[in-house]
Simulated assay, not measured.
Amino acid sequence: MELEFTGPVFEWRGPAPYHFVAVPEDDALVIQDVAAALTYGWGMIPGTLRIGETTWTTSLWPKDGSFVVPLKDKIRQAEGIELGDVVTITLTLDV
């Protein structure tokens, strides 16, 4: 299954800052339909993501009934992504 969505990069300040993009509600509902078959625990959903020319594997994090995509520094640096930028993500889930 492949989904494409766009959203702003935001920061969560914990012990170490993380950057994320929220999955839009409509796409989150599609993911929730297949989540039980994909999760490896704690609601984490593994997938392959692409922004621009950069492709990587990570897991979507559950948040407030939806999901967020973590953006590692390495990914943000490769694509020149800054806090607040709006990015388009292609998400592939092995369903």
Rank of each mutant, 00 (worst) to 15 (best):
H19V: 09
G43S: 03
P8H: 03
E53H: 13
T90E: 14
V23H: 03
W12M: 11
K63A: 06
V86R: 15
M44V: 12
E25F: 01
D85K: 14
V87N: 05
P24F: 10
G14C: 04
G65C: 09
S59C: 01
G52Q: 04
V68R: 10
Y40C: 05
A78D: 13
Y18T: 14
A22S: 15
W56Y: 02
F20D: 07
Q32L: 14
V68T: 13
T58K: 05
L38A: 07
V68E: 08
T54Q: 13
S66L: 07
L71D: 02
W61D: 03
M1Q: 09
T55W: 08
T57M: 09
M44K: 10
D94P: 01
T92W: 09
G41N: 05
V23G: 01
A36E: 15
I51R: 06
W42C: 03
S66E: 09
L29T: 10
G7P: 08
D33Y: 00
L91Q: 02
R13K: 14
G52I: 02
P17I: 01
V30E: 12
P70R: 10
E79W: 08
T55K: 13
W56V: 01
T58D: 13
G14Y: 01
F10Y: 15
F10H: 06
P8V: 02
P15A: 12
E53I: 06
Y40I: 15
R50F: 03
V86L: 00
F20L: 09
E4R: 14
E2R: 14
A37T: 11
K63W: 09
A78L: 08
Q77P: 04
G14A: 12
E25R: 14
R50N: 11
A35D: 06
E25H: 06
V21S: 05
Q32G: 05
H19W: 14
P15R: 14
W56H: 01
F67E: 04
G7E: 07
V69I: 12
D27W: 03
L60W: 03
L83W: 04
V30T: 04
K63Q: 10
T57Y: 03
R50S: 11
D94Y: 03
E82R: 13
T54F: 11
P46I: 04
F67P: 03
F5R: 08
T92L: 07
T6H: 05
V68W: 07
F20I: 07
Y18H: 12
R13A: 12
M1N: 07
A37D: 15
T6I: 06
P62V: 12
A28Y: 15
M44T: 12
V21P: 04
P15E: 13
S66W: 05
A36H: 14
V34H: 12
T57V: 08
T54L: 09
L93E: 04
